[in-house]
Each structure stands twice: as structure tokens, then as C-alpha cells.
């Protein structure tokens, strides 16, 4: 469960979010809106990467401002560009990196990493240099690095923007099968069929918040 209460935010003089009140309990929630409407800022708040200037955010009952590390342990985040998210040289090492605080032995970490890679279609790539994977594979790797920690919530900020149509579909389908709550920021409206709830942002405000069909219809009209 994720709650925003009267959340506002600004950079310098520019207000990027105002009066956001949301309680998100659905399993599949999407955020859509024009460029600069505040989606990424809102998504980052769920992980404590940005702290709200006004109001408060609660994530699974925790306060990201005070319990940032506890929140980040339970919330996974997938960024748009996997190149900046993959931090270690090989796919296996990168997934194992997520487990470095787990107290598991190096060998056990490597084994789990391989298991997760295999589960999401990267079996046999553990030793592969991460930067030589294709864009879609890199994004899968970024996802694996999060899922190996079994988070309760997964936030994805435009994870499919750099992918081709087939990989886009595959990625979103994969998200659909996960047990965790998923918050997805996206510009790919046709991927949202299976979603439970779509929140439309415009200039930092929530302007629609509904099931996909009506919400997207509103958004399309807004865009003109």
C-alpha cells in the first residue's frame, strides 16, 4: 500500500507536483501524462530518491524520508536506461551485487543470480559482459537485479522506452505475471490493457484516476 497525502514538490521556482492525494492498493497501477508532468518525480518518491517538499508519502507503512533504506529494501526500481542501472561488468555479478548484504556466501549468491537470470529468459548469460547484451536483454537484467531481492513493490519508470515493439510487449507481459505490486510510468498506452488503475498527471496535478479505458480516453482528449 502506497499513500500520498497532500504531496507537493518544486525545483527552484518551478512547481512540479501539487496537492497529490492518492492511495494505491491495486496490484497494477500506471502513471501517464505529458513530458514534464511530474511522473518521474512522483515515482522516485516511492523509493525515497526524491523527498516531498510538502505533504507526506507512506510506503508499506514506512516513511521514505526517515526509513529510506528500509523502504528501498522492499521497493525495487527499474529505470529507463538500463546502462545506468547495471553497475557490474557481467550479468551474473550484477544480479549478485543486489545480494551483497544478504549474508549469503559468494557461491550461493552466484547460484541465486543464475537461477533468477534463467527464470526471466537470460539463462546462460551469467558470465556474459553486461554491456554486450541487447537493449531488451539489458532491461531484463535490470529487472532480474531487482527481483532477486523479492521486493514487495516494483516501480518502473518508462522501462520500455528504449525497447522495440516485441520486447516492449514481452516486458509488460512479464510485469503482469509478477506477484508484487507494480507501479509503471509509461508513454506506451497500448500496453495498459491488463492494468487495474491508471493515474493521469498534468502539470503536477492528478487530473484523472480511473480504470484504464476511461482514464486513457480522458488523457487522449487532454492531449488534443
Amino acid at each position: 500500500m502506497i499513500e500520498f497525502e497532500g504531496v507537493g514538490h518544486h525545483y527552484g521556482d518551478r512547481t512540479v507536483l501539487s496537492d497529490v492525494d492518492l492511495t494505491l492498493a491495486e496490484r497494477r497501477v500506471a502513471f501517464v501524462g505529458a513530458n514534464g508532468s511530474g511522473k518521474s518525480t512522483l515515482a522516485r518518491m516511492v523509493n525515497g530518491l526524491v523527498l516531498p517538499a510538502e505533504g507526506r508519502v507512506r510506503v508499506l507503512g514506512l516513511d521514505p524520508a526517515k526509513q529510506g533504506n528500509a523502504v528501498r529494501r522492499r521497493v525495487g526500481f527499474v529505470f529507463t536506461n538500463p546502462d545506468s542501472q547495471i553497475v557490474m561488468p557481467t550479468a551474473g555479478e550484477d544480479v549478485a551485487f543486489s545480494l551483497r548484504r544478504s549474508g549469503l556466501s559468494t557461491r550461493e549468491r552466484a547460484r541465486r543470480a543464475e537461477e533468477v537470470l534463467a527464470e526471466y529468459g537470460l539463462g546462460g548469460y551469467a558470465e556474459h559482459p553486461a554491456h554486450q547484451l541487447s537493449g531488451g536483454q539489458k532491461q531484463l537484467l535490470a529487472l532480474c537485479a531487482m527481483l532477486v531481492l523479492k521486493p514487495d513493490v516494483l516501480v518502473c519508470d518508462e522501462p520500455t522506452t528504449l525497447l522495440d515493439l516485441r520486447n516492449k510487449r514481452r516486458f509488460v507481459e512479464l510485469l503482469g505475471r509478477l506477484d508484487q505490486q507494480v507501479l509503471l510510468v509509461t508513454h506506451d498506452l497500448d500496453l495498459l490493457g491488463g492494468f487495474d488503475r491508471v493515474v493521469v498527471l498534468d502539470e503536477g496535478r492528478v487530473v484523472a484516476d480511473d480504470e484504464p479505458e476511461p482514464a486513457l480516453a480522458y488523457y487522449r482528449k487532454l492531449a488534443g
Partner: peptide, 14 residues
């Protein structure tokens, strides 16, 4: 820019 994103990613990864 890559450094900033990496910084965020590292934070997100605890």
C-alpha cells in the same frame, strides 16, 4: 548524466 543516473541506481539498490 550517466554518473547521476548511476548514483540514483546505486541508491535504489541499497
Amino acid at each position: 548524466r550517466h554518473a547521476d543516473e548511476l548514483g540514483e541506481a546505486l541508491a535504489a539498490r541499497g
